[in-house]
C-alpha cells in the first residue's frame, strides 16, 4: 500500500518535473534570445555590468543556496580576481583569456585559504570569519604595491581575444562577456546536478546525517567554497576587462553585502533567481547614480523587507505561488 502511494506520487513528481523542465527550457531559450538581441536596445556597458554581477551572484548562490553556507567575504574573490586579471593584462601583457584564467586561479587559491580557516566554524561564526578575513584582504589591497592603493589599476587594455578578436569593439566585448556568462551558468548547473552537488544539498539539509553517512563534510564544504570563489573570480576578472580598471570598491565588505542582497532578492537556492536579483540591484544603482540619494538606504530597506516578508526571493515566491506550481515548479 505504502509502496503504491509512493510510486504514484513519484510518478506524479516525474511528470511534474517534466513540465517544469519544459517550461524551464522555454524560459531559458527566451532569456538567451533576449540577451543576444539586447545590445540593440540597451547600453552595452550596462548589460555587461549586469552579466558580470549576475554571474557573481550565481557563484555566491552556489555556496549559500546549495550548500547552506553564508559567506560574508565574497568581495575578496570578485575584487581580488579583478586585480589579478588587470595586473596580468596590463603589466605582463597577457592576452585577455589568459588574464581571466589567472584571475580565476588566484580567486580559487584565495578561496582555498579562506575556506580552510572558515569551515572550522558553522553558521553565524562562518559568516563573521569570512567577513573578517575579507576585511584583512581589503587592508592588504590597500597597502600592497601592485594594486596601486586608492588609485586602483587604471586603463587596463582589453586586448585581442586569442590574439584574433578585437575586444575594444563593444559588440565583440559584449558577446564575449555573454559567452563567459553562459559557460559559467552551465558549469554551475552541471555542478549542482552532479553527485557532488547532491551531497552538498544533503549537507545543507542535515549536516550531522551527511557525516553519519560517511561523507567528509569539511572536504565537500571546502570544495564548494573553492568552486564558488573561482566562479566569482571569473565574474571579477571579466568585469576588470569590461570597465578597464580594478579598484578597492570591489574588495570592500559593502560589495560582499551587495551580492548577498542580489541572491536574497532573486531567490536563494534557485538557479536563475540571482540573475534577476542582480538585474534589479544593478538597475537601481544605475538609476540612483545620478541623484545624490545614497543607495545604501534603499539597499538596507530592501534587505529588511526581504528578510521579513519574502525570504524565498522573487523567483522563489513565484515557484511557490499557484501559477508557479501549476507550471510544475517545486520549491522548498
Amino acid at each position: 500500500m505504502t509502496d503504491l502511494t509512493h510510486s504514484t506520487t513519484s510518478a506524479k513528481r516525474t511528470e511534474r518535473s517534466a513540465t517544469a523542465s519544459m517550461t524551464y527550457a522555454i524560459f531559458l531559450a527566451a532569456g538567451l534570445a533576449l540577451l543576444v538581441i539586447a545590445p540593440a536596445f540597451f547600453y552595452p556597458i550596462f548589460l555587461m555590468k549586469l552579466l558580470c554581477f549576475a554571474l557573481f551572484a550565481c557563484a555566491f548562490n552556489l555556496l549559500l543556496g546549495y550548500t547552506g553556507l553564508l559567506s560574508f567575504g565574497h568581495a575578496t574573490f570578485f575584487g581580488g580576481a579583478a586585480y589579478f586579471t588587470a595586473h596580468a593584462v596590463k603589466e605582463w601583457g597577457l592576452t585577455p583569456e589568459l588574464g581571466i584564467l589567472l584571475g580565476v586561479a588566484g580567486a580559487a587559491i584565495l578561496g582555498l585559504v579562506m575556506g580552510f580557516v572558515a569551515i572550522r566554524r558553522q553558521g553565524i561564526y562562518f559568516a563573521m570569519i569570512t567577513l573578517a578575513l575579507s576585511q584583512m584582504f581589503y587592508f592588504f589591497c590597500l597597502q600592497a604595491e601592485f594594486t596601486q592603493g586608492e588609485d586602483g589599476i587604471q586603463s587596463v587594455p582589453r586586448g585581442h581575444l586569442f590574439g584574433l578578436v578585437d575586444l575594444n569593439q563593444p559588440t565583440n566585448m559584449y558577446y564575449f562577456v555573454l559567452a563567459v556568462f553562459v559557460i559559467g551558468l552551465l558549469i554551475i548547473w552541471r555542478f549542482i546536478n552532479s553527485p557532488f552537488g547532491m551531497i552538498l544539498k544533503s549537507i545543507r539539509e542535515n549536516e550531522a546525517r551527511a557525516t553519519s553517512l560517511g561523507y567528509s563534510v569539511a572536504r565537500y564544504k571546502l570544495g564548494a567554497f573553492v568552486m564558488s570563489a573561482a566562479l566569482a573570480g571569473l565574474a571579477g576578472g571579466v568585469k576588470a576587462l569590461v570597465f578597464q580598471f580594478a579598484t578597492l570598491t570591489d574588495v570592500t565588505w559593502q560589495m560582499s553585502g551587495e551580492v548577498i542582497l542580489m541572491t536574497l532578492l532573486g531567490g536563494i537556492g534557485t538557479l536563475i533567481g540571482p540573475i534577476f536579483g542582480a538585474g534589479l540591484v544593478v538597475t537601481l544603482q544605475n538609476y540612483l547614480a545620478t541623484s545624490d540619494f545614497p543607495v545604501t538606504i534603499i539597499t538596507g530597506v530592501v534587505f529588511m523587507v526581504c528578510v521579513l516578508l519574502f525570504r524565498r526571493g522573487l523567483i522563489g515566491e513565484f515557484y511557490a505561488s499557484r501559477l508557479g506550481r501549476k507550471l510544475g515548479f517545486e520549491h522548498r
Binding site: L70, I124, I260, T296, I297, T299, G300, F303, C306, V307
Partner: peptide, 18 residues
Amino acid sequence: HLYGLLFTFGLALTIEGT
C-alpha cells in the same frame, strides 16, 4: 539565525546611509 544577521545588516546600512 542567519536571517537575524541579514536583518540587522540591512538595519545598519539604512541607519548609516541616512
